[in-house]
C-alpha cells in the first residue's frame, strides 16, 4: 500500500532523514518509535507532501502505485484527507476555535465530496456514534468546551469519516493523560478492526506502539536502526538503543538499574538479523 524507499530529506541544507525505507501493507498497523528529533514527524509530513517547497526529498514514496514525490499538487490535494489522513499530536491547537465541531465535519466532508450540509451532518452523527459520542450536542460545541481526550476522539472520527485507506497518526496520545491514552488506543484498534485501514502510528511511547502495531520501526537521528515484527523487537531487542527503550518500560526495574545513555550507533549497515528483523550494526559488533 505505502512503500517508502531510500527516502532522504534535507531541510534548509540539513539532512533530517537518511535512506529511510519502510512499507505499510494493506490493513496492517506499523509503528515508528524514536526520540524527539529523530525525524518521525518529518517522515509523516513528507509522506503527505506538506511543506514541499522548503524540503528537498530524494528517493521514492509509492502509494497505491502513485509516486507521491512527483505527483502534482492538485492531485496530491485530492489524496490528502480522502486517501491519506493525518491525526496530529495536540488536538487543542488543531481545531479552529471559532468553528463548531459540526462545522469542522462539514468543512472536511465538503472539501472532498459534493455533499450538502445536511448529508454531512448525518455522516458526522454516524461517525460520532461509532466513537460513543452519541450526544447531538457535541456537534454544536466549540473546541474549548471539550476535553483533550474528547477532541482527539473527534479528530479520529473526522479523519475516519472520509474512509481513508491510510491513517498517519503522529503522536496521537502524547498530550493526554494515561487513562485517556488507553481510550484512544482502544478506539484506534476498534477503528482498524472495523475498516481494515492501514495505520502508520508514530510515538515515543513504547507502550502505545506495543499495543497497536504489528511491525515496529525504531528510528534515531534520521535513520532506521531496527525494523521488524513487534513480537521480535519487544522480546529480543538487538540494537542498544532499542534495548534501552524496552528496559525503560520494564515494570519491575528500579531507577538506578535503568540506563539513560546508549551507545551511539547510527552508522553501519542494516543487516538481516532474523526473519524480517533488520538491525543496523557496525561491522565490529557483528
Amino acid at each position: 500500500m505505502l512503500e517508502v524507499q531510500n527516502l532522504s530529506v534535507h531541510i534548509q541544507g540539513k539532512q533530517v532523514l537518511r535512506q529511510v525505507s519502510l512499507t505499510v501493507p494493506k490493513g496492517k498497523v506499523v509503528g515508528i518509535i524514536g526520540e524527539s528529533g529523530s525525524g518521525k514527524s518529518v517522515l509523516c509530513s513528507t509522506i503527505l507532501q506538506l511543506f514541499r517547497k522548503d524540503r528537498k526529498a530524494a528517493g521514492t514514496i509509492k502509494f497505491n502505485g502513485d509516486c507521491l514525490l512527483s505527483l502534482e499538487e492538485k492531485k496530491m490535494r485530492s489524496l490528502r484527507g480522502k486517501e491519506i489522513a493525518l491525526i496530529m499530536q495536540n488536538p487543542m491547537s488543531m481545531f479552529n476555535p471559532l468553528v463548531t465541531i459540526g462545522g469542522h465535519f462539514i468543512e472536511t466532508l465538503q472539501a472532498h465530496t459534493s455533499m450538502t450540509k445536511k448529508q454531512a451532518i448525518k455522516i458526522a452523527k454516524e461517525q460520532l456514534a461509532l466513537f460513543q459520542l452519541n450526544d447531538v450536542d457535541v456537534l454544536k460545541k466549540y473546541p474549548h468546551e471539550l476535553s483533550g481526550g474528547m477532541l482527539q476522539r473527534i479528530m479520529i472520527a473526522i479523519s475516519a469519516s472520509l474512509e481513508p485507506k491510510l491513517l498517519l497518526a503522529d503522536e496521537p496520545t502524547t498530550a493526554l493523560d494515561t487513562m485517556t491514552q488507553l481510550e484512544i488506543v482502544k478506539e484506534l484498534k476498534k477503528l482498524q478492526a472495523k475498516t481494515k485501514m492501514s495505520i502508520l502510528i508514530v510515538s515515543h511511547d513504547l507502550g502505545v506502539i506495543a499495543n497497536l502495531a504489528e511491525e515496529i520501526i525504531v528510528m534515531r537521528r534520521g535513520v532506521v536502526v531496527e525494523y521488524g515484527p513487534a513480537s521480535h523487537i519487544l522480546l529480543h531487542p538487538i540494537h542498544p538503543y532499542t534495548k534501552t527503550l524496552v528496559a525503560a518500560r520494564d515494570e519491575h526495574s528500579t531507577l538506578d538499574e535503568l540506563n539513560d545513555k546508549y551507545e551511539d550507533t547510527v552508522s553501519g549497515e542494516l543487516v538481516l538479523y532474523d526473519e524480517n528483523h533488520w538491525v543496523r550494526m557496525e561491522d565490529s559488533s557483528r
Partner: peptide
Amino acid sequence: KALLNSRLTIDCIHNYL
C-alpha cells in the same frame, strides 16, 4: 485500580503471542 489497569505496558506482547 483504574489507573493501574490503564497502563499501556509492553507486557501485552506476551498475551499477543
